[in-house]
Design a protein around this nucleic acid. Structure first.
Lengths: 353, 353
DNA sequence: ACAAAACATGACAGCGCTGTCAAAACGGAT
DNA sequence: ATCCGTTTTGACAGCGCTGTCATGTTTTGT
């Protein structure tokens, strides 16, 4: 039929390097070199099923010779599922999220998947933009440690059409799946522990938690646990900025302007804050735990390496990342996955309380 | 020939939700809804140049109504440059790289770019696979903190056809661009400083550096600096595993089985190791710096928050990430960028030496 | 009012790959 | 030699979008 296409070869192949550098060879060129059709080359290059051994070898040789790198954009567009996973975290300066990311990356990568990263800095609008942006890459799934998400964000996640894992907290009802621990229960556990140790004067010191739902929930849990014994927080100091050792140091100094030491126990939003407080105590000549008892959250290595191991609530961060990755991979494979996976927590009774 | 394709519309559009969820609307549907051609909708949605104001509004309204999310896979494949940047780091447990990644992400994102992450765990073969994998997503650029890269890795990077930034160390000749500091000079600076303070018995304590080229180079610089004063390292303790506070604690304990304290100065591969040593000293009743002087590397916050601020060499990690991102963005814009950018370092004379 | 320029829109092809279906090649059994 | 089932290969179309070029449609100058 009057096919009016006189051109047979789409591109001039007369020279090796059309424009200097070796402009990325395509699958078509590999196929031509191997003397097979494009689709056969395609099949050979992944899996090699439905391809004769001899053909497979020819294609592989051609690919190697041409230094072929497949174009997954095209591959994903054409058919397959993407092998990218969007990951949205509120911060990277808190080592908690670095740990989670590490666990995620390790397990995703083993399955040939890669994280595309977004950091929201605990800003809900920023997070919203991020989710929209990352979704436009049509990832196979999405992992998010939410930062007081907007309604629009939740709508996007619900309608994303791919598996979504919310990590860190399992208290709120998940959009799709959740992996983490009950932050509220962790807060209550700390309250019960301190009460059990005989403390009655208990203060809270935190970084800026206005948009950190997990720190807020932990504090809620703490307050709730205390109220069950009819105890109220003796004081609360919250400083702006992300949690860090110096911030904890500064915050506890302020606290001690409001509250007398002596029988005082202080709960911190994170271990690094508590470590800062410990340093302040060393400097100020305060006895820990005699004058001031210290308790952190998250069970970071630094806290456990202190001369006095820090009382804390250990969260399993690597595990959260690993399980989130596994949950996604299972869903990709069509398997059923529990909506909520609780990795639990462990109260570490240290020497600082 | 009998084109036997009676079907005109590729997809049944008779219902809104073909299969339950709102299966992602395409640009074509937005265009149809707005009553314009696909290409006009495309132009309207990005930039809005060459589009009448009225048309622009119609298209934007349609996109909003349909909850349209563009498909950047298709967009990138069709024409534009990708807005993804491959990032390969050797580790995430060292907060140094978390900081770098943070700086990178922040600045990339401001320009609408996103990192695809790979973590090599200091394994050259792993790194090689990672580079190949990430390159198959056709990123617009690549940032790598190399881990004793293989020849194949370097070849891939050189032939990637996109800007490549090697970060952290600027001593080796860059494949394309480099942003960082002279690790060797940093090592030497520490040597000179310690010698200047009167120390003659100097030891090195490190994590497993067999595949960490930067730690190796710093150690080389240290040794070189010492040898200029005809001093040799009194001892070297290297423990397997990534650097951490507990590892430093353990390592210094071992060191003290080999070397007597008293006039001893110890250089650590990283600040967290040195902090661990400080804790050990506190526990063991050793006076710092009297019995044992401690010096770290990287100037981490934790070291500066110690009761005795830690002597260290501060590296500007956020800055490295930021500059690497800016270098890429500049190259994307066709601008010239210096091959090597030295962010320098600063020796922090602390109270531990 | 008419040509020239400026703007706005659209048709077409194609990015590089993979799903689907159909054809060819091969092997063994009769 | 013939037939059938299996393996191996290929043709075709299309994923969703954007470059290029061509075609309207307005505006401006004289």
């Amino acid at each position: 039929m009057g096919s009016d296409s006189p051109v047979i070869f789409g591109r001039d192949m007369s020279t090796d390097s059309p424009q200097g550098g070796d402009s990325r060879p395509t699958l078509a060129e590999v196929a031509r070199t191997a003397g097979v059709s494009e689709i056969t080359a395609s099949r050979a290059l992944r899996g090699g099923t439905h391809v004769a051994r001899r053909t497979l070898e020819k294609v592989e040789a051609a690919a190697r010779a041409l230094n072929y790198v497949p174009n997954r954009l095209a591959g994903t567009l054409a058919g397959g599922r993407s092998r990218q996973v969007a990951v949205v975290l509120p911060s990277l300066s808190n080592s908690v999220f670095a740990d989670v990311l590490n666990g995620l990356e390790t397990h995703l990568e083993q399955a040939g998947h890669h994280p595309i990263l977004g950091v929201s800095n605990y800003d809900p609008d920023h997070e919203e933009r991020l989710v929209a942006d990352l979704l436009s890459w049509r990832p196979a799934g999405l992992v998010i440690a939410p930062a007081a998400s907007t309604v629009a964000t939740r709508r996007m996640l619900a309608g994303a059409g791919v598996p979504v894992v919310e990590i860190m907290d399992i208290d709120p009802a998940p959009i799709d799946m959740a992996v983490g621990l009950s932050q509220r229960a962790a807060g209550r556990a700390m309250a019960h522990y301190l009460i059990g140790r005989g403390y009655r004067k208990i203060a809270y010191v935190g970084h800026d938690i206005s948009t950190d739902p997990r720190a807020t929930t932990r504090l809620d849990g703490l307050v709730q646990g205390l109220s069950e014994a009819e105890i109220k927080l003796a004081a609360t100091v919250i400083l702006p900025g992300p949690s860090s050792v110096p911030l904890g140091r500064e915050a506890v100094a302020r606290l001690l302007q409001e509250v007398e030491p002596g029988g005082l126990a202080v709960c911190f939003s994170n271990d690094d804050m508590a470590v800062g407080a410990m340093f302040h105590a060393l400097d100020a000549g305060l006895n820990v735990p005699g004058d001031i008892a210290l308790a952190g959250f998250n069970g970071l290595a630094i806290g456990q390496a202190l001369p006095l191991p820090l009382t804390s609530v250990a969260s399993r961060r690597d595990e959260i990342g690993a399980l989130a990755a596994k949950a996604l991979l299972a869903r990709f494979a069509g398997e059923d996955v529990a909506r909520v996976q609780d990795v639990g927590f462990r109260l570490i009774p240290g020497a600082t309380t």
